[in-house]
Structure formats: C-alpha cells, structure tokens
C-alpha cells in the first residue's frame, strides 16, 4: 500500500476508463491504471490512479462522466466526488 498522496478516479465503464487513459497519455499526465480498491467500490474493473493534482487534468476529461473521485491522503481515502 502506498503512503503518499494520490487521487483515485472511478468511472462507470471500462470504456470511459480507457477514454480517460487515452487523454491522459496524450497530455503526458502521471497516472496508472489500477484495480478499483475494494474499499472504494465493488466494481471488478480498473480505475485511474493519478499522481498529479487533479485540477491540472480536470478540463481535459470534463466530457466524461466520472462515477467517484477519492483523495488518498496517506492514511485514508476521502470522497471528493
């Protein structure tokens, strides 16, 4: 388990996750596709783990409906959806 700050972006479908993946790759954001943490959702799929500040990528992905967004502050996940 990581101990540094990160954002977890959850989407409704893997299709939307991959749409965001395509955009983040294009803008060279620091991110990773990771399994959805079980404490955040019962989804079997993947989500985006973002190292950057979320504000810097928000405008790029605003057309895609996000399901939930969490900030991991080093100790716990905070729902900032």
């Amino acid at each position: 388990m990581q101990n540094h700050k990160a954002y977890f972006l959850l989407f409704h479908t893997i299709h939307d996750v991959l749409r965001v993946d395509k955009i983040l790759k294009k803008i060279a954001a620091q991110y990773e596709l990771v399994p959805v943490p079980r404490n955040l959702s019962t989804d079997c799929g993947m989500c985006i783990k973002l190292e950057n500040d979320i504000e810097s990528i928000k405008s790029h992905i605003e057309g895609i409906r996000m399901d939930k967004c969490f900030l991991f502050n080093g100790n716990e996940y905070v729902d900032i959806t």
Binding site: H12, T13, H15, T42, D43, R65
Partner: peptide
C-alpha cells in the same frame, strides 16, 4: 458486465 457489480439491476450506461 464487470461494472456496477454490487447491483442486481442491469447498468443503464453505454455500452455496458
């Protein structure tokens, strides 16, 4: 669908 696995109802989002 691999999505919304907690629900026993069909997802309403496309394409799932």
């Amino acid at each position: 669908t691999g999505s919304k696995s907690e629900s026993i109802e069909q997802p309403t989002v496309f394409p799932d």
